[in-house]
Design a protein around this nucleic acid. Sequence first.
RNA 1: GACCCCAUCGUCUAGUCAGGUCUAGGACAUCAGGUUUUCAUCCUGGGAACAGGGGUUCGAAUCCCCUUGGGGUCGCCA
Length: 555
Amino acid sequence: MSVRTRFAPSPSGHLHVGGARSALFCWAFAANHGGTFLLRIEDTDQKRSSDAASRGFLEDLAWLGLDWDEGPLWHGRGGGETGPYEQSNRLDIYEQYLSRLVAAGHAYHAFETPEELAEARRLARAEKRAYRYDRAALNLDPDTVAAWLAEGRPHVVRFRVPDDSPIIIQDAVLGEVRVEPGELEDFIIRKADGFPTYHLAVVVDDHLMGVTHVIRGQEHLANSPKHALLQDALGFDRPVWAHVSLIFNPDGSKMSKRDKDKALRAEVRTRGLDSPPEGAEIDEQRWESWLGDKTAQLETEEASRLAGVLGIDLPAINVDDFRRAGYLPEVLLNYLALLGWSPGGDREQFDLAFVRENFGLDRIIKSPAKFDRSKLLAFNLDAIQAMDDDQFVVRLHAFCQDFEPMFLESMTPHQFKLFARANKERSKTFRDPIESGRFFIEQDEVITWPATKAIRKALCKGEPCGFDRLAAVRDLLASAEPWTPAHLESMLTTWADANCDGNLGKIAQPIRVAVSGGPVSPPIFDTLDILGRDAVIARIDRCLASRGELEEAAL
RNA sequence: GACCCCAUCGUCUAGUCAGGUCUAGGACAUCAGGUUUUCAUCCUGGGAACAGGGGUUCGAAUCCCCUUGGGGUCGCCA
């Protein structure tokens, strides 16, 4: 039988790195076995699912290059014989299996309200005992149940957990996992709104879609016995389970899609804010329910607006966060693969093709791993340095198109090309040239020279000082012909030989500060080339004019 | 709290399943030098781990047990 794997996210927010890794492993395992990789949208939670979120997921997956063979239709991907692939479109299917379970006595109707259950849980907790549903509904007489159902009384359907023998599941990563009878309660398989819960939907869909291998995060391990029970009751084969260890934050807590909200809530609390701050654009009611419910999540835009207003950085946990931060998809995938899987030996850097060729369940790592940003960054640096110049130009261009269009609007294509090339060597991410290169696209009049230590050192220190040297080469630059890095270099090198003992830095640094407003730029001759003569001279003149002010500030 | 999972440098890991080749290898980080017109790179070198205790064995990082530590789950979320 051919291998079929599935990635089945619930569309709440963006794809986070843990989900991305699960998707990668599913993809790789299927690809390695010439099988099929399915994508299924688990949108049975009416409160939390949104179309926007599921589009975000698809985009994130596509950006990573993890194409699904079957699943939602999206830009030429997806389709398949076993759809629909959104659970909200499969309700009638679940209903059939649900009736079957009820008819066979494997499931029963229960009428407790959420409030009653919450109270029972609270009580159990107060008495320090483990809470399990008491099966009260099982003792209802059939006529009462029939009457209540007929009058439309709200109810759920619970699965009747057999209490005679232990549940033993085989996990490809963890081995045998055993749960004693009595550890599981009669879990709910259909909610009061008529939607199935995750457990039922997953089991039915995995069966109908022919899923052979379920590779997922270890937070799902405790669900597997429930699924095994449902599969047994329904007469389905069990899939091969492989539970992958969790990804942690550096502080050791589980890296979760709720971390952003957690950080936000903590900041709101410490500041004692009781209403949404100006500029966050969150309405009062939403604010209340978000603050009060620690499982509630703000929309991506709301969250980043709020973070902006509060002046805090949100933790990067979503694929999209890393994309915006200028990481390469292949590097993120490489790093993620390493967090939970190892090809063995000393091999660490590899591409998707390598993962496809070598991935196997047997080398999945059992212990949890902390997400280390600095290693990811080091990998990204290596990948960028391994590109040829033209490739870097193209990819930086694409990045700017998505996130920094100003860089394309403010430069000619030729300038952009020079800009990209000059920056490649010092770029760890696509963000780097953007952040350090703002001065390239700013108007000449916007450049200022604050009296920082580095700027004063370059311009004011010494005899002669940087200003003196700048003044001395100003006309030389104004009349330089041709305006090329090579010619500028030979010109200024000659000048430095004659005027500062061949120490090019003595003149390069004042020029750098003058044209950029700061102490950092690409190599000075490239920088001048990109800016062009007019901007360079205009900036030098303005810088020279600011001399009095700067020297005064230094006193 | 109950149940389940996990345990090699600060971090990710190789080595564990088939015990000796391990005075435990690599990578990131870190420290010390060096290269460099700034920044970033880059080069050289250093320090850094088998959680603890019992077994089994001629021999244990590797097998078993206990302890400790970390984590997950305990939702009409998925």
